[in-house]
């Protein structure tokens, strides 16, 4: 994994350092080639001895794949970059090299694979960006909106009833139909949340593109991140329930 684990968290250490973390400054230091000790100026290889260099432990996934921190990424470009870097780092191409180079290639390829997997999926990408900008999303649980919560409580009762019922009976059929309607409603709701998210993603990218550092821009940034966090959390909540529903009535 690319990142130094955060010592304040246990069991959830795949999170990158936040902007404000002082350790973030440290990685700006120039790195030295592990082999010939000269300063590494090339991107992935030492220009002097042509040895592959380890990807820094603190390189974020956007940097790793050479993309700016934006939420709209062209999947084709992302894939092309992933393939290009796979050709650079994959252990298959280091079989005839030294053990040291093989170890670096293995760990670089593992980082690259994680980076691509994370950025490829728009939701995971947003969660990751949020983590980069503000710290972990996973351990901050926002409660679901009140109306949704009521609905879910009722749904849980129906689910219990359905599980206990005879599936073939009239009651079973009736409950199943109710659950199906619920599932469709929740999927619509999830869809709405996702279009809201996409609007926020666009807002984020626009704000980044302007590159303003005014207090107004900062307030806008905080608003987007806060809303994004809430929406991502609600969406995960709804998504889990939809999956559970689908599995029960399948």
């Amino acid at each position: 994994m690319a990142h130094a684990p955060c010592p304040f968290l246990l069991m959830d250490n795949n999170q990158p350092l936040s902007h404000s973390d002082p350790r973030r400054q440290l990685r700006m230091a120039r790195s030295m080639c592990w082999h010939c000790q000269s300063e590494v100026t090339g991107e992935y290889f030492c220009e002097r001895c042509v040895k592959v260099q380890p990807v820094s432990k603190d390189t974020d996934y956007f940097t790793c794949l050479g993309f700016p921190r934006r939420l709209a990424l062209d999947p084709k470009q992302l894939e092309a970059k992933f393939y290009e870097l796979s050709r650079t780092f994959h252990p298959d191409f280091y079989q005839t090299k030294s053990t040291n180079e093989q170890t670096i290639s293995l760990s670089n390829a593992a980082v690259l694979n994680t980076a691509y997997r994370t950025l490829r999926d728009p939701i995971q990408r947003a969660e990751y960006l949020l983590a980069l900008e503000t710290g972990s999303v996973k351990d901050i649980r926002t409660s679901p909106p009140a109306d949704l919560f009521e609905e879910i409580l009722e749904l849980q009762d129906t689910l219990e009833e359905y599980r206990a019922s005879d599936r073939g009976s009239d009651q079973g059929h009736r409950l199943r139909a109710t659950l199906q309607t619920e599932q469709e409603a929740l999927e619509r709701r999830k869809g709405e949340m996702e279009s809201q998210l996409r609007r926020l993603f666009a807002d984020w990218d626009k704000l980044q593109d302007t590159g303003e550092a005014t207090s107004q821009a900062r307030a806008e940034r905080d608003r987007i991140l806060k809303q994004m966090r809430a929406l991502l959390s609600h969406r995960t909540y709804v998504n889990n329930i939809v999956n559970d529903l689908a599995a029960t009535i399948a």
């Binding site: 994994m1 684990p5 968290l9 246990l10 069991m11 250490n13 795949n14 252990p91 293995l106 760990s107 390829a109 593992a110 980082v111 694979n113 994680t114 691509y116 997997r117």
Partner: peptide, 13 residues
């Protein structure tokens, strides 16, 4: 179905 090489880290206490 995670592309290999793949790695994960876990902290223990």
């Amino acid at each position: 179905n995670t592309t290999i090489p793949a790695s994960a880290k876990e902290m223990f206490t």
